[in-house]
């Protein structure tokens, strides 16, 4: 470690950039072409829905004949978008916070300690990831009904925690494994207690993992369909449930109104993601919290 930091950087990268450059760029350019193709399809998909949501009448050309914003007012009224937005944000944030709070200590123990029954516990956290949502969603919904938590936000939060907590554990384990145990041993030898080791040694080193896990859980919860669908009622619906309901009624609900709901839903998730990306910088994650010093 020490030697590599002392070595000057320039002489090292010079031979690196010379000869093999051409071969690398061939493979590289293919990578970039695929990436750009993906982005073009993506931008076009979004454009189509956004343009559709503003279309007064669907034209026969590339673009609609005239534009209007009336579908937004209509959708806000018909679907109660305000309440849907509130439900979605509350559920997503509560689930992310609880999942990470439970996930960090669990992932730490499973990555570092060895004890009787550890494999069994690993299996317990792996199982919800490896069996389909429907397998437990249907009986889980029955349980939530029995507890009289159906059509409440608490019920929606509970069912969303079931896949989220093990997901956090599973994503965080490799990140704990990547941390050199000697760092932690050194801290303990210098007199740090468990809380200090977690707060001042592990958590900063695990930041890339925590952020990755947090963002992935957030997005999964906002888009979670089956579980929420089975326990949510009119007062505890999230946006995606309302959107699916609209999309399956394409004969009754106008196409523009469906696309309006899609835009509102997409915008919500996008804003939530932007806010999390303010805290999460994928490039800091790329530095692994190891080399980058701000």
């Amino acid at each position: 470690m020490t030697t590599s930091t002392v070595l000057p950087r320039a002489p090292m990268s010079a031979p690196d950039d010379r000869r093999p450059r051409r071969r690398a760029s061939l493979m590289g350019s293919l990578t970039w072409v695929v990436l750009w193709l993906f982005i073009v399809v993506l931008v076009a998909s979004v454009a189509v829905v956004v343009i559709g949501s503003f279309a007064d009448r669907t034209g026969s050309g590339w673009l609609p004949a005239s534009y209007t914003a009336k579908w937004y007012a209509a959708a806000w009224q018909d679907f109660g978008v305000g309440g849907l937005l509130g439900n979605t944000v509350v559920v997503a944030i509560v689930v992310v916070v609880i999942s990470l709070a439970i996930g960090i200590p669990t992932a730490y123990v499973l990555a570092r300690q060895s004890f009787a029954g550890k494999r069994l516990l690993l299996g317990l956290f792996l199982l919800p990831q490896v069996i389909p949502t429907f397998t437990y969603a249907i009986p889980l919904a029955t349980l939530v009904y029995a507890l009289q938590l159906n059509n409440t936000l608490v019920g929606v939060i509970i069912v969303n925690l079931v896949p989220s907590i093990p997901f956090a554990v599973l994503v965080l384990i490799p990140f704990v494994e990547q941390i050199d145990p000697r760092v932690e041993q050194a801290a303990r030898m210098s007199g740090a207690g468990t809380i200090q080791v977690f707060g001042r040694i592990l958590a900063p080193l695990m930041v890339p993992g925590l952020l990755a896990a947090g963002v992935l859980i957030l997005v999964r919860v906002v888009g979670q369909f089956e579980l929420t669908f089975l326990v949510a009622g009119p007062d505890s619906q999230t946006l995606v449930i309302a959107l699916y309901a609209a999309a399956t009624q394409s004969g009754i609900v106008s196409l523009q109104e469906i696309e309006t709901m899609a835009v509102v839903y997409a915008l919500t998730t996008l804003i939530l993601l932007m806010i999390s990306l303010r805290f999460v910088d994928p490039t800091t994650a790329a530095a692994g919290g190891r080399t980058r010093v701000r």
């Binding site: 200590p105 669990t106 499973l110 300690q113 317990l124 889980l140 093990p166």
Partner: peptide
């Protein structure tokens, strides 16, 4: 191997038993 640290898994395990194992 049940050092005090191991018991940190308890909240997660309890939740999973009630809301996952039982329904399955």
């Amino acid at each position: 191997g049940y050092t005090p640290t191991v018991w940190l898994v308890l909240p997660g395990v309890l939740f999973m038993v009630v809301f996952f194992i039982y329904p399955v």
